[in-house]
């Protein structure tokens, strides 16, 4: 008798993802949903979704959700977690949300050591609004607002927010991963698992930056976009544990 070894996780609602073919968001949603079950925290989890492509995350993740204004996820999560310290509070934010309009909220939440978890999805572009330059867009990378590619002299250079957050004393665990290959997807899951465990142990601010392909706005096939992450994005944003003050968390 064959056994099902892989199926839809129970914290994913039955709805069909609105994301484009090959989008990394839905993979990350699934990983989060799997972990909510595996760590048995789904019943006490509160998610703060962003503005951007993942604004509709409440259609997919079957947990309590409180929508934040664009960029303010870390501040809203602060209010939630301080009021309900026993719950698991996490934000889900894109690169525009967290590293441009919400930079201040994020840095100060990390600096205060807020005991929250941030899932930071970096696809180098404003997806929902149609592919404008994000703070994380690579030098030379095309976007609808950087004709001829991002020019550092005109547009600035990609911002490494995770590195900045690592400087803040209150941040405990920061790792950068990707969802462009099966190996990296597994690594992403392990990282998010650790981030949740850091929060469960009450240690402080945890964040996983996930490099994610955006085939539609990059104007590539999903397979090419996955390769592009490997060949270009990880050169500027290398995959690594950026900070780990927690060590082994059980």
């Amino acid at each position: 008798m064959a056994k099902k070894v892989f199926e839809r996780p129970k914290y994913l609602k039955k709805s069909v993802f609105h994301y484009c073919p090959g989008c990394g968001h839905s993979i990350i949603h699934r990983l989060v949903a799997e972990l909510l079950d595996e760590l048995d925290i789904g019943k006490k989890a509160i998610c703060v979704p962003p503005a951007g492509c993942a604004v509709l995350a409440y259609n997919y993740l079957d947990v309590d959700m409180g929508e934040a204004p664009h960029g303010r996820g870390a501040a809203v999560a602060t209010g939630l977690k301080r009021t309900l310290p026993d719950k698991i509070v996490f934000t889900y934010q894109g690169d525009g949300d967290i590293a441009a309009i919400g930079t201040a909220e994020t840095i100060h939440a990390a600096n205060r050591g807020e005991n929250i978890t941030v899932i930071f999805v970096n696809n180098g572009v404003y997806g929902m609004t149609g592919g404008q330059m994000a703070p994380t867009t690579l030098e030379g990378q095309n976007s609808t607002t950087t004709p001829g590619g991002r020019d550092p002299a005109r547009d600035g250079s990609p911002l490494d927010l995770s590195q900045m957050l690592a400087i803040a004393k209150g941040s405990v665990y920061i790792e950068r991963t990707a969802v462009n290959s099966p190996k990296n997807i597994r690594r992403t899951k392990r990282a998010i698992k650790k981030a949740f465990k850091v929060q469960m142990a009450g240690l402080g601010f945890s964040l996983v930056e996930v490099l994610s392909p955006c085939p539609t706005n990059w104007k590539m096939t999903p397979v090419d976009a996955a390769k592009w992450v490997e060949e270009h994005v990880t050169k500027i944003f290398p995959l690594k544990v950026i900070k780990d003050k927690a060590g082994k968390v059980t």
Binding site: A75, G79, L80
Partner: peptide, 21 residues
């Protein structure tokens, strides 16, 4: 919480209010 900005302060209030405080 002494917030980093007025924006952050009101958004923290949003979070606390969502949590029932």
């Amino acid at each position: 919480v002494q917030a980093e900005s007025e924006l952050a302060a009101i958004n923290m209030v949003i979070g606390a209010s969502m949590a029932g405080a």
